[in-house]
Design a binder for these strands. Structure first.
Lengths: 131, 131
DNA sequence: GACCGTTGCTTGCGTATTGCAAGTGACTTG
DNA sequence: CAAGTCACTTGCAATACGCAAGCAACGGTC
């Protein structure tokens, strides 16, 4: 048995600590992942090219990688929307959709403290908070 | 005037988009920054070695870098707590402390969806939400 | 007063992650 | 049948990360 490797544990199983914040950041704590979740949750995007077309211009290899990670982590599921060639539509699972409060909190913080950020209509925010 | 450079704009001023989520992630969207904010906000840590001692074991160069970035961004302020040698205590500004709803949302998501994460006592959570 | 320990960093350097550009395969359309 | 679209993949250079070590300025110990 090699040193530094524990049996039965994949790299992704490693926990930095039992902290729920740390563990959540290990899944979505980077510059891009939550933008994909945003597109799925607030803009109803489903196809690869739609994410690709977002104004932040995510590089295509990163997008592919993040979609895979989100799928493995169970936040996103893909279902074929056509055959020949098979193409998949991406959608949030209930687990993924449950990130909405995080995104809403980020929106509110950004709006309050970063000048020039887009403010969603108050009515939309109210609606999103309700459900 | 050189191409690719706009006058009066530093690199940090560049916005990927007007999205408040994207802009907030540009400040705190990495694996470590919000853990420092957590330590400041929920655990009352103030000194370098206290952050260093957190269970996630942040590398010291990253810690120094993140503290600088948070300070430049106005989320953290440092004040000397001793002379000879000068040592600084770090504290959240009101802007930084306002990230509390984001952290609470991350805690709740982690608790709900990642097995084995530490659950703060319900009373503590209630208290933090109130103010 | 020569050590040892602590605090708060910085520096070097190998490795991992990013990001840009170009390429690919399976089609569809003109 | 050439050109275009979609959803990726691949190559590779640049950037960021992470580990270990170093270091300055003390304070305490013997």
């Amino acid at each position: 048995m090699k040193p530094g490797k524990k049996p039965g544990k994949k790299a992704a199983d490693f926990k930095r600590s039992p902290c729920p914040i740390a563990n959540t950041l290990d899944l979505v704590g980077d510059k891009w992942t939550l933008l994909i979740v945003r597109d799925l949750l607030f803009f109803g995007k489903r196809q690869y090219r739609e994410f690709s077309a977002s104004p932040e211009r995510i590089p295509s290899n990163i997008l592919a990688d993040r979609l895979k990670r989100l799928e493995r982590a169970g936040l996103v599921a893909k279902t074929p929307y056509q055959q020949r060639p098979v193409r998949y539509a991406y959608a949030l699972t209930p687990t993924g959709a449950d990130l909405k409060p995080v995104l809403l909190a980020l929106i509110e913080w950004g709006n309050r403290h970063i000048a020039g950020t887009y403010r969603p209509p108050a009515e939309r925010l109210r609606k999103e908070r309700r459900r």
